[in-house]
Amino acid sequence: MNFTKKNIEDAVNEKILSFEQSKKLIEFLKKQPNTSPKFDFTHVLYYIGGMIAIGAMTLFMNLGWESFGGIGIVFISLFYGSVGLKLTNIFKSKGLAIPAGICGTFVIALTPLAVYGLQQALGVWPDDSVYREYYQYIKWHWLYMELSTLAVGIIIAWKYKYPFLIMPIAVTLWYLTMDSTVMINGGDYNWELRKLVSIYSGLLMIALAFWIDIRSYKKADYAFWIYLFGVISFWVGISLQHSDSELSKFIYFMINLLMIFTGVLIVRRVFVIFGALGCSGYIGYLASDLFKDSWLFPITLTLIGLFFIYLGVLWQKNELVITSKARSFLPQALRELLESKHA
């Protein structure tokens, strides 16, 4: 829970703290290192600068770099990487966790470029594709770049332990599932298979994120990025499924409702956002197709909406009793995680 000056002043008014204690507490909090991400101008500048630097060596890489040849690309990548690691260590020594994590992420993002250059230098690059296509197309031979990125990412994340370092690892896991599908399928870009792989790989990433969440919630939010790309992969996979069965469409709606409930339970907004999108899509389908000419449909939706509001009122009145009883049946580690989220 984040405390504001107003919260402390309210505590003084309620005689929980004395005025002198509140002043000392405010001074103490001001002296603490600013290590967690916040939406302020300083952190916005950090992330803008970091994403520009990372984007320059990834998404926005142009064909001009091909003129350096494989060896040239390898040496330039190593030079940039050494600078990135040096800056990471400098910022770490100064207690600046956010820029340190961004610089470490920059090093991880350089890995596929270095591996691409090495493959070009060794003459083992299999076709005429170029590095910039790594972020645009699905190809089996990106696997070497992805596996190398995962290895470097895990090493750097283990050494520095900044949550933002997990971002390129999560992205690479997502890429890896898509490219490995093409390889397993013998180079065939089977759309149905890719949708199924998206669903199951998303579920695996969500399970991995949940495991990380339970193990590390007392330290930092290392699970955020894996949750994000896991939910995206799963939700896109189920949303692209096609069926003429009304039952299948209703099951899709219920899955999205379950995502919303899960997001509220473990305090992960990404589940709620995508679950709400899915529910909205289903309701939009009902309005535009199944009940297109029914005057009862808007009235029914209104009643359903009011019913949910009523459920919210009941939940607010009985939340402590319900959650206390429900959590008593959960494993200790999961109970502690949920209690920390709602502290």
Rank of each mutant, 00 (worst) to 15 (best):
W225S: 02
I266A: 04
F234A: 03
N34R: 13
G70M: 08
K325G: 00
S245Q: 12
N318T: 14
P126Q: 01
R215K: 15
G275Y: 02
G278S: 04
G69F: 09
R132K: 15
W191H: 13
I71F: 11
I273T: 02
V130P: 01
S328W: 11
I154C: 05
F261R: 00
K92N: 11
L204S: 10
F60E: 05
A220W: 05
M178N: 05
W191D: 12
K31R: 15
L150I: 15
L258N: 07
I309S: 05
K292Q: 13
I214Y: 02
I299F: 14
Y47C: 00
G72M: 01
R335V: 06
T323P: 00
L311M: 14
S22G: 11
V182C: 01
Y217L: 03
N256G: 09
F297P: 00
W315C: 03
G50R: 02
W140E: 03
Y175G: 03
Q241P: 03
A100K: 00
L277Q: 06
L196A: 01
F224L: 11
S239I: 05
G72N: 06
N62C: 08
L240P: 00
A326W: 15
S82N: 10
R335G: 05
I260Y: 04
G55L: 09
M205Q: 03
A97K: 01
V124N: 06
T58S: 12
T105D: 05
A326K: 09
K249P: 09
W140T: 05
F329Q: 12
G70I: 11
A100C: 09
E339Q: 13
L196I: 10
R268K: 12
Y160L: 04
V197Y: 01
L290M: 12
Q32H: 11
A170E: 03
T302Q: 13
A53L: 15
E246V: 14
E20P: 03
G70S: 06
M205Y: 01
A56Y: 08
M61Y: 03
H242A: 06
N256W: 02
H342L: 06
V313K: 11
M259F: 11
D127P: 02
W142T: 00
Y282R: 07
P126C: 10
Y134T: 09
G230N: 07
S324C: 12
E14H: 12
L29Q: 13
F91D: 01
I212L: 09
G263I: 02
L173S: 04
V231S: 03
Q316N: 13
A220H: 09
V270N: 07
K195D: 08
W225Q: 05
L301P: 00
V115N: 06
F229M: 07
N185M: 09
V12E: 06
S18A: 12
V236H: 05
D293L: 14
L25F: 04
A151C: 13
A326Y: 13
